[in-house]
Computed example of a mutant assay.
Amino acid sequence: MPTPEDPAEEIATEDGAFAAAEAAAAELSTPEQPMGAKGKPLDWRLPFLIGMTAAAGVAVTYGLVQVLAGLQDVLILIGLALFLAIGLEPAVAWLVRRRFPRWLAVTTVFVVGLLAVGGFLTAAIPVLVDQATQFIAKAPGYLHDAQDHATILGQLNERFHLQQQLEGLVSGSAGGLGGGLLGAGQAVFSAITNVLILIVLTVYFVADLPRIRAGGYRLIPNSRRPRAILIGDQIFTKVGGYVLGNLAISVIAGVLTLAWLLIFGVPYAALLAIAVAILDLVPVVGSVIGGVLVSLVALTVSLPVCLATIVFFVIYRLVEDYLLVPKIIGTAVQVPALVTVVAVVLGGALLGVVGALVAIPVAAAVLLLIREVLYPRLDQA
């Protein structure tokens, strides 16, 4: 009957094997190759290795998808901050060309921007509070008119069920916010926090944009790097021109709306003008939504004023599409109208308002890559 080996002999045997391996390792190490010569590579055609590689690839891909889904809100903030930084770069570069140090140019741009926003809010907040108070005071009267079938507002309510839709929207929003002041407070706090994070990220991105640009181009092979620099800089130019141009057009829309509403005595003129300027930042659909909103408020004055306001927004939309956009941002972006509509719809479906805002410059970048990279390769195929 066999007996088990002595444990001491087994340990001695293992120590001897390890000592032999150490001696072999010492012989392999040379000044030219301190870690020794490379061994025979693995045969990746083995079925086991192929299966393990495929399984690992699926697991890593699934993990990355889950990580990206969990970080969606943060990634949107980072992407939007980078987008705004590229948009502000032309102003910073203009100051740098005037012999401003970059840190001073970045500081100047943000200080001027904050002063402009602060001055606007200082002038607008009292008016907005006053108009919001008036609206709250007159809301019962609007509700009574909506229930009176003899008035125009009542007839529209009866035909389109405006009151029921508004009540459903308000109740749904209240439920989505947690139902009550606590949910509204959380939403406001979250919005303020996101805005502050966005501002801080934008400042850092603008300050380090040359380093980010150089680091990104270093990831491209040296043989392709010069052409990549030309194409990438052209994309940056398109994004910068779009951001500044879109902001200028929105300001024009708000100012013209304010003038029109003041002339015809439409209530809540400042509130509506700011709403139109913000909505006009969203391409294609923003100005339409703003026009509908202002026209409904103008209906409280009279039907002729409402019709005149509709005509005003139709004319302004034509002027914006065929005069302002081509003159201000058309030469920089150069995106066909059909591509613009499709890009805005897809961007809005994927990322909401943020997707609609960045859809046009992203479409411009994709068209540039197709024209400069894909088409030449297909023509030579």
Results as ranks from 00 to 15, higher is better:
Pro326His: 02
Gly330Leu: 03
Val311Ser: 09
Val335Gly: 05
Tyr316Val: 08
Val325Leu: 08
Lys327Ser: 15
Val335Asp: 02
Phe312Trp: 11
Thr309Val: 02
Gly330Arg: 02
Gln334Thr: 06
Leu307Arg: 05
Asp321Met: 13
Pro336Lys: 06
Leu318Arg: 07
Thr331Asp: 03
Arg317Pro: 11
Val319Gln: 09
Tyr316Gly: 13
Asp321Phe: 03
Ile315Phe: 10
Tyr316Ile: 13
Val325Phe: 01
Ala332Ser: 15
Thr309Asn: 12
Leu318Asp: 07
Val325Pro: 10
Phe312Gln: 09
Val311Asp: 05
Glu320Ile: 02
Tyr322Leu: 02
Val325Cys: 05
Leu307Pro: 01
Val333Leu: 14
Lys327Met: 14
Ala308Trp: 08
Ile315Glu: 11
Val333Arg: 09
Glu320His: 03
Ala337His: 03
Asp321Tyr: 01
Ile329Ser: 06
Phe313Arg: 11
Lys327Phe: 09
Val319Ala: 12
Ala337Leu: 03
Glu320Val: 08
Ala308Ile: 10
Asp321Trp: 00
Leu323Asn: 08
Ile310Asp: 00
Leu307Cys: 03
Ile315Thr: 13
Leu338Val: 14
Leu324Val: 07
Val319Phe: 05
Ile329Arg: 03
Leu307Asp: 04
Ala308Tyr: 05
Thr331Phe: 02
Glu320Ser: 07
Val335Glu: 01
Val325Arg: 09
Arg317Leu: 10
Val311Cys: 12
Val319Trp: 04
Leu338Pro: 05
Leu338Phe: 05
Leu323Glu: 05
Ala308Pro: 04
Cys306Gly: 00
Cys306Phe: 02
Glu320Trp: 00
Leu307Val: 10
Phe312Asp: 13
Val325Thr: 14
Tyr322Val: 11
Val319His: 01
Tyr322Pro: 14
Tyr316Gln: 09
Val333Asn: 03
Tyr322Lys: 14
Ile315Val: 15
Cys306Pro: 00
Tyr316Met: 13
Leu338Cys: 13
Asp321Lys: 13
Glu320Asn: 11
Cys306Ser: 04
Lys327Gln: 09
Thr309Leu: 05
Pro336Ile: 09
Phe312Cys: 13
Val333Met: 11
Lys327Ile: 10
Ala308Ser: 10
Ile328Tyr: 02
Ala337Val: 02
Tyr322Phe: 04
Ala332Met: 15
Lys327Tyr: 04
Thr309Phe: 04
Pro326Cys: 05
Glu320Phe: 02
Cys306Lys: 01
Leu323Ala: 15
Arg317Tyr: 07
Leu307Gly: 02
Gln334Glu: 13
Ala332Trp: 15
Val314Lys: 11
Leu338Ile: 13
Lys327Trp: 07
Thr309Lys: 10
Ala337Tyr: 00
Val319Ser: 05
Leu318His: 06
Pro326Asp: 06
Leu324His: 08
Ile329Glu: 01
Leu338Lys: 03
Arg317Cys: 11
Thr331Leu: 02
Val335Gln: 06
Asp321His: 03
Leu307Glu: 02
Leu338Gln: 05
Lys327Thr: 14
Pro326Leu: 04
Leu318Gln: 10
Leu323Ile: 14
Ile328Trp: 00
Thr331Ser: 04
Ile329Tyr: 01
Ile328Gln: 08
Ala337Lys: 00
Pro336Met: 08
Cys306Trp: 01
Leu324Lys: 08
Ile328Val: 14
Ala332Arg: 15
Val314Tyr: 12
Val319Leu: 12
Gly330Asp: 03
Leu318Lys: 07
Lys327Cys: 09
Arg317Glu: 10
Pro336Asn: 08
Lys327Val: 11
Ile329Cys: 00
Phe313His: 07
Leu323Trp: 01
Ala332Asp: 12
Cys306Thr: 00
Val335Met: 04
